[in-house]
Amino acid sequence: MKKAMQASISEVLGTMFYMPLEFETQESLEHSGLLKTPGMQMASLGFKGALSGTLVFLVPRDLLQAMTADFMGERVVSAEQMAGTLKEIANMVAGNTFSTYDSAKEFCLGIPELITPSRMASLRSGGKEIFLLVESVEGSMGVWMGLDS
């Protein structure tokens, strides 16, 4: 699954934002420092099917603002545009991950939503976790997946 996530992140962010990326696959969410980053923005997306759980995309506000401005072709972007960009990234990464992981199996994706740090903490209440730290020239991001037991 981690390899499918990595390929999907590269494809989505490379295509949408032309971002060269590097991955730290041995890093944990706790040790990445992302949860302690001021202004961290997070979008979650539940999924069901052969596997069930939640995917969360984490990106610092300043980096999200730059990504949204590049994507929209505008210098100034609104909070709503940034939220839409973040939710769309989560949706595209999740969909691409599951089709890369096993294109023969069906997965039902939920509707992406913005979450708070306290909601993120509640998602991490057991079960298997997969985390990728994503490094770009502009900064660090993360993708976390929690699988239901």
Rank of each mutant, 00 (worst) to 15 (best):
P20W: 00
L21T: 03
L21F: 01
L21W: 04
L21N: 02
F23Y: 12
F23M: 10
E24F: 10
E24G: 11
E24K: 15
T25S: 15
T25V: 15
Q26M: 12
E27M: 07
E27I: 01
L29M: 09
L29A: 09
L29E: 10
E30S: 06
G33S: 10
L34S: 14
L34A: 13
L35Q: 07
L35M: 11
K36Q: 11
K36L: 08
T37C: 15
T37Q: 15
P38T: 02
P38Q: 05
P38K: 07
P38I: 05
G39F: 01
M42R: 00
M42P: 00
A43C: 09
S44Y: 02
S44R: 03
S44I: 03
L45W: 01
F47Y: 05
F47H: 04
K48S: 04
G49W: 01
A50F: 06
L51E: 08
S52D: 11
G53R: 00
T54S: 13
T54W: 14
T54V: 15
L55F: 08
L55N: 07
L55T: 01
L55C: 11
L55V: 11
L55Q: 06
V56S: 08
F57M: 13
P60Q: 07
P60E: 12
R61D: 14
R61K: 15
D62M: 07
Q65E: 13
T68E: 02
D70E: 14
D70P: 08
M72S: 12
G73Q: 13
E74C: 03
R75G: 09
V76I: 14
V77W: 08
V77C: 07
S78A: 10
S78W: 09
S78L: 12
S78Y: 08
Q81Y: 12
Q81I: 08
Q81P: 10
M82P: 03
M82N: 08
A83M: 09
T85F: 13
K87S: 10
E88A: 07
I89A: 00
A90M: 11
A90G: 13
N91K: 03
N91A: 04
V93C: 00
V93F: 00
A94Y: 02
G95C: 01
T97N: 04
T97R: 08
T97I: 06
T97L: 06
F98V: 00
F98T: 05
S99A: 13
Y101Q: 06
Y101H: 07
D102R: 09
D102F: 06
D102S: 09
D102Y: 09
S103D: 10
A104I: 02
A104K: 09
K105S: 12
K105C: 08
E106I: 07
L109H: 01
L109I: 00
L109Q: 01
G110V: 02
I111W: 05
I111L: 11
P112G: 00
P112A: 04
E113Y: 11
L114R: 08
I115G: 03
T116F: 08
S118T: 14
S118K: 12
R119S: 06
M120W: 04
A121I: 03
A121K: 11
S122R: 11
L123G: 02
S125R: 15
G127D: 07
K128S: 14
K128G: 11
E129I: 05
E129N: 07
F131C: 02
L132A: 05
L132R: 06
L132V: 15
L133F: 06
L133V: 00
V134Q: 01
V134W: 07
E135V: 15
V137D: 15
V137Y: 14
V137M: 14
